[in-house]
């Protein structure tokens, strides 16, 4: 007797992308659970991480989650591949340091200013290359962090190769712990929401077929600029936060590591889902930290993982989970 596996969507009527007709409490829980539980889990996590080391890993994870989210948002909203998340991170990191050291602004103020202002600087740097596509844009983004790092090295401004030290830290550990987590959650849901509006729909269409969007009387450059600004704001926040956390900024703020690990997180979690990259960061970054003793070998490890996933399982975890959750699978006789 031949059997085959059948996949059926769960019988919840989806009227529109985000309006559900709910008939019972259990259905309501079913719909709400995937977003409520992870949020609660994340918010409770700092309370149950005992050691300072674990706290730092959690924070590092959140920082990479922001970079991964930023990478994914650029990819979804413009169809462009960035190889230089380090640019956003570095610009944010250095602007926070300068604002704090030279202008004496407190961390909470520098965070806001360097997120908004740093993103403006980063966007202005990338803007001339926005009409480019594919490898051309990838090359530009690859070049920028290298260029800024070399320029700082060569001119010895901003502390040169030694970096800048003595930057103020956060007022207390709770701010330190929760600030970045809340920002990750807020950013993820805000961007998801944005992509579901008509504005976001136009953004997503640009990566599908930019010519048809232009022929629809829409200026795609404006949309790309907004997308890059939002993405770089995330990266800049991550950089600024990191600077205050370690009270130091150096050329490592432009390192290649910051560009490639977020891509790996995004691919593992599922490109284009926004939540996926965050999930990916929470899997990959702690793993990478566990093998920190291996030195640079851990970069080899996650680079190869990234290649394997792109080649063999490009779907990503989030899409997989979504499918499993929304569909019933059963064996039926043929």
């Amino acid at each position: 007797m031949a059997k085959r596996r059948e996949r059926i969507d769960r019988p919840i009527k989806v009227l529109s992308e985000d309006i559900y007709a709910l008939e019972s409490v259990s259905r309501m829980i079913y719909v709400a659970a995937p977003s409520v539980f992870p949020i609660l889990f994340l918010l409770l996590l700092p309370l149950f991480t005992p050691s300072l080391y674990m706290q730092r890993v959690l924070i590092l994870t959140a920082v990479y989650a922001l970079l991964a989210l930023s990478w994914d948002f650029i990819a979804v909203a413009t169809g462009l591949v960035s190889l230089g998340q380090a640019l956003f991170f570095g610009v944010g990191a250095y602007s926070a340091a300068i604002l704090n050291l030279h202008f004496g602004l407190p961390p909470m103020v520098t965070l806001v200013v360097s997120t908004l202002g740093g993103a403006a600087i980063a966007t202005a740097l990338v803007a001339p290359c926005l009409p480019l596509r594919g490898i051309y844009f990838a090359m530009t983004t690859l070049v920028y962090p290298l260029l800024l790092a070399r320029a700082i090295e060569a001119t010895a401004v901003l502390g040169g190769t030694d970096g800048l030290v003595g930057i103020a830290s956060f007022p207390n550990v709770w701010v330190e712990r929760y600030l970045v987590l809340v920002f990750v959650l807020g950013a993820t849901f805000a961007l998801r929401r944005l992509l579901r509006t008509d504005f976001g729909l136009v953004m997503r269409s640009i990566s599908d077929n930019d010519q048809a969007v232009r022929a629809s009387a829409i200026n795609i450059t404006v949309y790309k600029l907004i997308a890059v600004y939002l993405a770089s704001a995330l990266g800049c926040f991550a950089g600024a936060y990191f600077t205050h956390l370690y009270m130091f900024v150096g050329l490592s703020a432009f390192s290649l590591d910051l560009s490639i690990l977020p891509i790996a997180c995004a691919v593992i979690g599922g490109m284009g889902t926004l939540v996926g990259p965050v999930l990916g960061a929470f899997i990959l970054v702690p793993l990478a930290e566990m093998v920190r003793d291996l030195g640079t070998l851990r970069i080899v490890f996650y680079s190869l993982l990234l290649v394997a996933l792109v080649l063999f399982k490009p779907e990503g975890l989030m899409n997989f989970l979504h499918r499993k959750y929304q569909q019933i699978e059963r064996w039926v006789q043929v």
Binding site: D198, F199, L201, V202, R204, S205, D208, N209, A217, I218
Partner: peptide
């Protein structure tokens, strides 16, 4: 356009949101 390339991932009617949003 000579070669039809709609916004593949969108439902047909959502394709029209793009010009309607101009």
């Amino acid at each position: 356009f000579q070669t039809v390339r709609p916004f593949h991932h969108l439902p047909a009617f959502k394709n029209l949101i793009v010009p309607l949003y101009s």
